[in-house]
């Protein structure tokens, strides 16, 4: 009961060890500037105060006072601890900022164009041959043209097949047909397949019967 209940025990040992090294002794802590106080100093102070309280004997009033003093010392311990941590953090922050300043000074010679991009923006490497460079509309147009040409090719192929099979005599082809096409059709017609002709003819007779 005589000793302050909390960390006092452990710290006492440390104090005893440190006593030789620290010339001021535990009392020295009381003379320090409050801004330089460490947790160890607080423990020194509590040691000194505890020792003097014990010397006062076991008067119940002293015991009452002792509890309050212990509480105040605990508060002081917390404040000193927090203060030191904050100082340490600020020191690290300062060191980092110093380094950052030095780095930026070093880069200062080369022009840095750090663009602050929005969340929907993207950086394009202009030296990348595969970089995106066409718009959606351009792609849409190209695709439409591709598909149009593809379908025209299919139509032409079908038409050619008709000529090949002799279904449409070249001379009866619609006016305006280019001579070259007719010649090609004629040439193909010469080697026309009889079997093919009959199948397609059958199909067409079905239609022409309906249309007329």
């Amino acid at each position: 009961m005589e000793e302050p209940p909390l960390r006092e025990d452990e710290e006492e040992e440390e104090e005893e060890e440190g006593e030789d090294g620290d010339e001021a002794g535990p009392e020295g802590a009381l003379r320090k500037s409050p801004f330089q106080l460490t947790v160890e100093d607080v423990y020194d102070i509590s040691y000194v105060v505890g020792r003097e309280l014990m010397a006062l004997g076991s008067d119940p009033r002293v015991t009452q006072l002792q509890f309050k003093i212990v509480r105040v010392l605990e508060m002081l311990e917390t404040l000193v601890n927090e203060g030191n941590l904050a100082v340490e953090e600020l020191r690290m922050e300062r060191d980092n900022l110093r380094k950052e300043v030095e780095r930026l000074r070093g880069e200062g010679s080369a022009p840095t164009r750090e663009v602050n991009l929005g969340p929907d923006k993207m950086v394009v490497d202009l030296t990348d041959p595969n970089r995106p460079r066409f718009t959606l509309q351009e792609l849409r147009d190209v695709l439409q043209e591709r598909n149009k040409l593809k379908s025209q090719l299919l139509v032409v192929q079908e038409e050619l097949q008709c000529y090949k099979s002799g279904l449409i005599p070249p001379r009866e082809g619609p006016a305006g047909r280019r001579e070259k096409d007719v010649l090609v059709a004629r040439a193909n017609n010469a080697g026309g397949n009889k079997e093919e002709k009959t199948i397609i003819r059958k199909l067409f007779s079905f239609r022409s019967g309906k249309q007329t």
């Binding site: 079908e158 008709c162 449409i168 199909l203 067409f204 239609r207 249309q211």
Partner: peptide, 8 residues
Amino acid sequence: MAKKTYDL
């Protein structure tokens, strides 16, 4: 002239 090779 219709050379349509399909119905639908």
